[in-house]
Each structure stands twice: as C-alpha cells, then as structure tokens.
C-alpha cells in the first residue's frame, strides 16, 4: 500500500489540556477514511495539525514521504493537501463563480501557469460547478447561499486546489437529514473522478459506514480504534465512548472547540 499520510507519535497540548495523544496512523492512497469521536475528542485538532493550522507539541507528520511537520497551511496546500471547513470559509461578497475562480486561479498560479484567465481555467470552473451541482447559483453571492450549498461550495473550493489528499471537516453538519446523503453522494462521485485520498470527520454513523473503507475513532485525543467500518463500529470502547450507548461523562476540553 502506497502511504500518502503518516503521523508518528503526534502530541498536542494546550496548557494542561491534551488535544492529541500519541497518534500513530498511516493512510494509504485512494482510501476514504472516516474520523469519528465526540466533540473535543481531537478530530479537528488532528486535521488542523495535518494542514498546518496548529503545530504539534511533538511528533512528526509525513506526506508522500516528506516531513511536513510545522509547515504553514499555505505550504502544505501547495504540496497537495486541501481541506474544507466545518463552518464554510467562503469569500462572502463574491459570487459562486468568483469563489471558484479564485481557487482555480491560485492553483494554476502555483503550478506556474499563465497569469491570467484562460479557456482551460474556465473549463475547470465549469466542471466543478457541474460536479457539485452549483449551476443554479453561479452568480449568487456566496454569503447569502443556503447552508447545504455553502457546504458544497466550500468543498468544491478545496477540490479546486487539485489535492491528492483531501480533508473534510464535518461535511454534513448543518445540512438537513434528508439532504445529507444527496450531498455525500455528490461529493464522493465528484472525488472519485479525481482519484483523491479522502479523510473526513463525521458524526452520523450511517454516513460513515456507507462511504468509508476505514474508520479512526478518537477519544480524549487518542485513537481508540482503527480498522474496517463494521469492526470499529462494533468495538465496545467505540460504542461506549463515541456512539455513546452508556452516555459517559466527559469533559469538553474546549481546546478542540469547533468553530
């Protein structure tokens, strides 16, 4: 298995609070991996460390056999790791088209392509619009879109960077229950065409089991289970601490406070 991402002995502390403890994980190419865990379990912290928003207290992160620990989000993005956000991070005053234009433009520029708009670039934007079903919103102001569409645009913008590794932070949060599957179908089929390795954080176990090949279960900063979806979802610890069958008391550590 070709390894895309490898975390070794990853730790992150905020003062006395441990947000990530001894995380060791390898992610293979073309896999779809789900990250589960209750709020404050360390999923977003993990994504934030991989994408350079947070610097690990100790340990290392390797991407395609290259050490990326402590690089900035910008450098990491340029290497081919893109992410979406739990709360969509859009250019609120620009139209949907312009949002994608910026994304495609930056990617083209870092690939040392021409400095101005080309027909090729236009094609790329149109493809994204089509794949993410944004055609009806092309000229709408991003800041005024409905939540589900904002999510889609946010993910489309991450995909615009032509990632090899894509991290999605709660792609279906804020999306109504009956739309979740439609959204995930759309995202996954869009990504299949691109051949991207995907990591996504998700609370809905139905979605996780439907779309992933593998699940990492987080609890108090540690990975307590790692394996095939059925196996992980059957795991006693996971059932207790993540799915919450005994509704355990745990502190909200605030350090991985989402949003």
């Amino acid at each position: 298995m070709a390894v895309v991402l490898e975390a070794k002995d990853l730790n992150k502390n905020f003062g006395a609070v441990t947000a990530a403890a001894n995380i060791n994980v390898q992610i293979g190419r073309d896999s779809v991996v789900g990250l589960i865990g209750s709020n404050g379990a360390g999923k977003t912290t993990f994504i934030n460390m991989v994408t350079g928003y947070l610097k690990p207290t100790s340990g290392s992160i390797r991407y395609l056999e290259r050490d990326i620990t402590g690089l900035s989000p910008r450098q990491i993005t340029r290497l081919g790791i893109c992410r979406s956000f739990q709360i969509p991070q859009l250019f609120g005053n620009l139209s949907v088209y312009e949002n994608l234009q910026v994304g495609v433009g930056v990617a083209a520029r870092s690939a040392r392509a021409k400095a101005s708009a080309t027909a090729e670039e236009w094609e790329e934007i149109e493809t994204l619009i089509e794949r993410f079903n944004l055609g009806g919103y092309r000229t709408h102001t991003a800041g005024l879109l409905p939540e589900g569409t904002r999510k889609l645009l946010d993910i489309a913008m991450a995909v615009a960077g032509k990632p090899q590794l894509l991290l999605l932070d709660e792609p279906t949060s804020g999306v109504s229950a009956d739309e979740k599957f439609r959204l995930m179908d759309m995202v996954m089929s869009a990504l299949k065409v691109q051949g991207v390795t995907v990591l996504f954080v998700e609370h809905d176990m139905e979605i996780v089991s439907r779309y992933t090949h593998r699940i990492l279960a987080f609890y108090e900063g540690r990975i307590i289970a790692d394996g095939e979806p059925e196996a992980v979802l059957r795991d006693a610890e996971v059932r207790r601490y993540v799915i919450g069958e005994h509704a355990p008391m745990h502190q909200d550590d605030g350090a991985t406070n989402h949003g």
Partner: peptide
Amino acid sequence: DNELRVEYMG
C-alpha cells in the same frame, strides 16, 4: 472576505 481561506488555497 476571508484571509484564512486564501492561505488554505495556497
């Protein structure tokens, strides 16, 4: 509009 996103686009 959003500096964070710009950095996250590279």
